[in-house]
Amino acid sequence: MIGRISPQALVVPLLLLIALTVGAVVNERFLTLGNLRNFTEQLAALGFVSLGQAFVILGGGIDLSIGAIASLAAVLLAGLHGGNEALFIPSLLLVLAGGAAVGAMNGWLTVWLRVHPLIVTLGMASVLSGITLLYAPQPRGSVPFWFEGFAFDSLAGVPLSGLLLGALFLITALVLTRTPFGRRVYAVGGNAEAARLSGLSVKPTIITTYALSGFFAALAGAYYVSRTGVGDPHAGDALTLASLTPVIVGGILLGGGRGGLGGVFLGVLLISLLNNLLNYMNLSTFVQWWCKGW
């Protein structure tokens, strides 16, 4: 929170710069507009969930149900409206609200049972995966054509998803640094008992961070649906781990209370860039398979 640049803070930007340079050198198409757009599109889902994870981790928790929420959101969004386009918008709202509600439930269970959030969200993930697979053993459903614009349209050359992600990052940064809620998140994550003794409302703060995480996970699920046009029950599987990486790379201390969103943003950029870069480089099959294993 206090502006001071430490040497460690420069590591990620530096890596980012190296990745960009290497990309430009290795392949002339790397820095083209086309690839840039492609890149932003891949970035969005990861960006959304990292925001949610950042809230939770700053508040002293961890959310391992992100991927399961995203998958459930994806199949419900594609399936609920049953082909009736008029029902699509309501089901979109329902899914986003549902994500937040499931997240809030995670939060409520952690504060009420006082169980480690790891267990609660892992258990929740298992429950949600079960529901998802019951509802959609195979990819199912469809989306209205216009909704695919969420993933593929652009405004003045910038993909819509990228714009949304940028806007959400700015809003989140504002919320974290300039609102009482953001301050509470830092305080609770830093020292929950001290926060309680200082008269802050600890439990609602924790629950809200999980609700936000659930919301962002559902948003990522919706984004997947708009990209693929179908509700894949495994859409979000990789997101749980993926959401942790940028947050950790970006330097938010696991344990809570420290770190800023700028780092997370750079972390998201770096991870996506690396993925993108690997696609462009003719790396040995070993590395490619290794990366796919992630």
Partner: peptide, 26 residues
């Protein structure tokens, strides 16, 4: 029941079991 119920059951059980043990310890 569909096997997916096993996933749901496991999730519920782990949350409940840890919750119960945590309560008892307190």
């Amino acid at each position: 029941l569909p096997v997916e119920f096993q996933l749901i059951l496991k999730g519920v059980i782990i949350i409940l079991a840890t919750g119960l043990y945590a309560r008892r310890m307190r």
